[in-house]
Nucleic acid binder design. Sequence first.
DNA 1: CAGTGGTCTAGACCACAAG
DNA 2: TTGTGGTCTAGACCACTGG
Lengths: 232, 232
Amino acid sequence: MSAIFRNWQDVHTEVRRRIQSREWEQGSLIPNESDLAEEFGCARTTVNRALRSLADSGLLDRRRKAGTRVTSNPERKAIISIPVIRLGLEDQNKTHGYTLISSEMTKPPPNTKARMQLSTNDKLLHLVSLHMADSEPYLYEDRWINPDPVPQVLDIDFKVENANEWLVTNAPFSRGDISFSAAQASLPEAHALGISEGEALFIMERTTWDHEVAITSVRQAFAPGYRMQTRI
Amino acid sequence: MSAIFRNWQDVHTEVRRRIQSREWEQGSLIPNESDLAEEFGCARTTVNRALRSLADSGLLDRRRKAGTRVTSNPERKAIISIPVIRLGLEDQNKTHGYTLISSEMTKPPPNTKARMQLSTNDKLLHLVSLHMADSEPYLYEDRWINPDPVPQVLDIDFKVENANEWLVTNAPFSRGDISFSAAQASLPEAHALGISEGEALFIMERTTWDHEVAITSVRQAFAPGYRMQTRI
DNA sequence: CAGTGGTCTAGACCACAAG
DNA sequence: TTGTGGTCTAGACCACTGG
């Protein structure tokens, strides 16, 4: 009658099955950990691990004293990997190329300043560059770097080294904002990417901080055809 | 000299600090769990929980026997929430509107068939609809539904009920593919969304399965201005 | 083969929040 | 107040994999 559940993955699978089969209905309370542990013939810790994992992925709602419920309208959570550009391309067996388009120290426009939550009026390092995949334009990058937390950045020759990679190695961040959107190619973007003005580009914008100090804010426009994919 | 680490979050924070401060260098081996447990004055289980969490977020690489290393080129992982459309809008205090544009049973085009990994030539339910936020066009949805695993779908009046929500409640899935891209608005999209043909749209495509049976494949085109945001 | 992380167990205490 | 999940502990065995 009752199967044997040896480990938390087994429990995870069985609980998931009960949710998907509607054996446990949406919004309803499920048995508490101790009861499940008894039913499954394992320790409560094991049940806890399984239920915690399901709660992390959004299928269960857990609250002390109130118990564990099947989420009524699960917000599905997708995990997106954001690799270093060169390595992402090499995973696809493509060669990576890089060209610096411009580099200057200048005051950032208000929206950039706001995104980075900067209070001073200091100049930032502004880099515009193009990444290539197998000699095809791949990504147009417009980046602002705050030299304050990483003064060494001023000594780097970004004609040779690309900022994406340099920062990963030299400027650890503790948190970041990220957004994805679509935009029509501006004239400089179209020119650099070898496409027509107005074509639709996939845009990723990121701003990162080391605690409260903004490090960099970047807008990356991917060449037409780019898809960001994952599983759920 | 040495601080006290009471719980796994403390250990997590301290290890993260050592990584970010470069006290433990990229690519280098860190002490094993037992040694860390001794240093931190806690049980190995606690250290394990903290390190596992850091490994999940991509900062550590762990392998039995080989030990735990600081990831050299961390792939940052962003978690994207995909809510039911109506609820996502209500979270933003916007009213949700919905209109069915067309509905028919027909054979899917080859690319749809391929995405859904269908082998038969059966007809599918094809729904095109528009979602509104505060009476503004918000999302143009083109959806194919396989009635085979969910025959009740044929009895639903999708002029009233929207497929997005109906499926969440009535057709649980076990896995899905998801992709994000940008595209220029086609004529019907532009017309429905009240924009010009060729404007840049943010596109989300999802195909979901219940085990090996495809349930639905949907392409959602968001009105200009849409941003998908998260933190990292 | 042996060292590492992966996991289980039983028991304990604690933090939170519903009633 | 009290039931629930959250977590810690010490000890144990196992699974994987590098050398």
